[in-house]
Design a protein around this nucleic acid. Sequence first.
DNA 1: TATGAATGAGGGTTCATTCAT
DNA 2: TATGAATGAACCCTCATTCAT
Lengths: 217, 217, 217, 217
Amino acid sequence: MKRRERLKQEKEARILDAAAAVFSGKGYHGATIRDIAARADVADGTIYNYFDNKFDLLVAILTRVSQSEQLGAELTQALDQDARDFFVAAFRDRLARIEAGEEMLKAVLPQVFVNEELRRQFYQQYVRRIAGLLEPYVQAQVDRGRIAPVNVPLVTRLVQSAFVGLLVMRILGDEALRAGWDDVPELMATMVFDGLAAAAGAPGAQEAAPARATVEG
Amino acid sequence: MKRRERLKQEKEARILDAAAAVFSGKGYHGATIRDIAARADVADGTIYNYFDNKFDLLVAILTRVSQSEQLGAELTQALDQDARDFFVAAFRDRLARIEAGEEMLKAVLPQVFVNEELRRQFYQQYVRRIAGLLEPYVQAQVDRGRIAPVNVPLVTRLVQSAFVGLLVMRILGDEALRAGWDDVPELMATMVFDGLAAAAGAPGAQEAAPARATVEG
Amino acid sequence: MKRRERLKQEKEARILDAAAAVFSGKGYHGATIRDIAARADVADGTIYNYFDNKFDLLVAILTRVSQSEQLGAELTQALDQDARDFFVAAFRDRLARIEAGEEMLKAVLPQVFVNEELRRQFYQQYVRRIAGLLEPYVQAQVDRGRIAPVNVPLVTRLVQSAFVGLLVMRILGDEALRAGWDDVPELMATMVFDGLAAAAGAPGAQEAAPARATVEG
Amino acid sequence: MKRRERLKQEKEARILDAAAAVFSGKGYHGATIRDIAARADVADGTIYNYFDNKFDLLVAILTRVSQSEQLGAELTQALDQDARDFFVAAFRDRLARIEAGEEMLKAVLPQVFVNEELRRQFYQQYVRRIAGLLEPYVQAQVDRGRIAPVNVPLVTRLVQSAFVGLLVMRILGDEALRAGWDDVPELMATMVFDGLAAAAGAPGAQEAAPARATVEG
DNA sequence: TATGAATGAGGGTTCATTCAT
DNA sequence: TATGAATGAACCCTCATTCAT
């Protein structure tokens, strides 16, 4: 009985793996149930014993990935670390993680733009949820005076956007990005925390910056 | 004679408009030629007098937009302006522009992830081309000592990534982002140029920053 | 298990029968997959579980017929029979056989003129193969002094041509031919072996020929 | 006015030539009106000023060819010639003629099998008409005792069938036939008039036959 | 009369889904 | 539960024909 149960889960996983691989390679519409069945080494019909329909596979893929995340704990523990160091570490971690999930992303993302339901779900699980974790952290840093008093939600979105953009650019196959991939977290941190303005003796960077940062409205 | 020619161009534009709208609304695969034809108010077959096939419509949509750009001139003229001001203005302009092209993006982007050819074309016209314009500008600013000596190509990519990410997030329908949309360029500039670190009396920001900016490798 | 297999073969045959009938009736292009499916009492899509495409049906029809042939054995056994008698018997047999295959011929022949691949295949299976069997036989008869020392390959082709021509004429619906159809083998033999010339004083022409020619009635 | 008329006829001829060429090359269905128009160097629509529809082109091609024939006169004049010699000459002439018309044949023949109307017309113009000319001639030869008293209509059909078959085989691209093409009329005559049987002990077979059989080359 | 853009019916083919075994 | 043959709706595209210019 238990074994029965486990076998079932294994097969479900195998199907999902196959689906992710095939979707990622040929796109959602380019992939056929037969492709997936063949890759999962089951019959076409078998898939329908585990999932309602093709679209369901997509949703399942999306959901499965977002479960292994536990950013929350990290963040609360990180409140007292150096913000910049933590940013670098966390950003690097996320990038590595998503690198592994790049297949999923290539499978799901295109349909995210197309399908309302999927979009909501993706947004909820990948943007909203993360934002809900990040914002309090950023706010706390602001409160502690470590970060300038910015528009916290917007800043969070900007960082998230940059993150998403990086993945998109990576999928697009940009060479410069791929070459400098390992330096991205550091450089990102430099930009976010310190800015690129040549500070040395440049009054602009030291005076104007804070003044402007209040713009947030 | 001329009239004939003009009518043809108008009809081609009408078809392309219709295609962009329908693709954007239902996705490339969800859209049928009949949908597009109906929206363009032509017969199905007529579309094939103007475009080779459905995919060709997508490519045409992509190409059409990227033609009205002339960032190049702006950039060379901007070399002597204040970099930050220019950044804000340019970023705002691009955002506005792409807002108008959001429909195009929703139409094309999903397929970009799926189709090799489209991906190359999109990358070429939207990433590489822009990068080719931006990099010399950034490099010049570095040379003039206005920007810290960073890894120029990578920084360029990061900014582009942020830009792309913003569009994706916008398409995802993020509320916070939509609400603060008009402040994005300013905030982005603040991050990129000045950093968010609470500089006031914090030596870390002033000293470490340049040191870290050499990350470029 | 076996039953499954048998059912599949039966269905394949049913589809092929339907295809031959419809092609024969409306021509290859006039026939639609729906026609064929309806006649075979299957769904449109089912046909594609058995054949790659419409053209494939044509090839399959062609191939199926040419398999039941075993002229080879007959010919080697016939070397010692009377050539003329054998000719009559064989010709009659072929005609009867092809009469049954007339539907196939009407289905396939038109496309043979049009399609390179089909032409090669038809030629190979129906002309070349038969020629390869006939020529040695004719040559052997020549060697034995029973047939005049003629250009063997060419004679073979002439006989084959006559055979093909008869079928074409039959398809064209010639009345005279249809009326005298059963006498064709005899008359053909008379022409080929004895000639029609009223041999001056040659009893053959006056006695034998009429004797044989009266078969017609 | 006259010039107007002539120009029209020229254009009609040009269109028909183009149609024959394209039909012959790609088959009736494979050929498009656009193909034909392009080859005739006119606009698509222009064709419809000269012919009712695509099928009409086929009929026109068929009709045009059969007009230049005047076998009738020859035949009546030939009644007193040696039948065998005349046969060879006439057969050779027809073969040469049809060689020129091979294009037409490849264009029309496939559809002949498919289309009732075209079949009737083809049969009428190419089989029935010729038969109507040949039969009286053959009958006359029989009456004069030059040809054995055979079933005249059937013999006529057999010869016609052989002729048709030769053309089909030629279109099929048979090498042996093409190589011996020029010898065909002689060999055909040998078969039809003298037969191939090596007349037992008949010096004729050993002397005459070889003499004629040397055709083989 | 010539043009060629517009038309739209029609057909081959695909593929998600079902269901008898 | 697994199978995979059967289903048939749906879609892209072609092309003969029309007709406004």
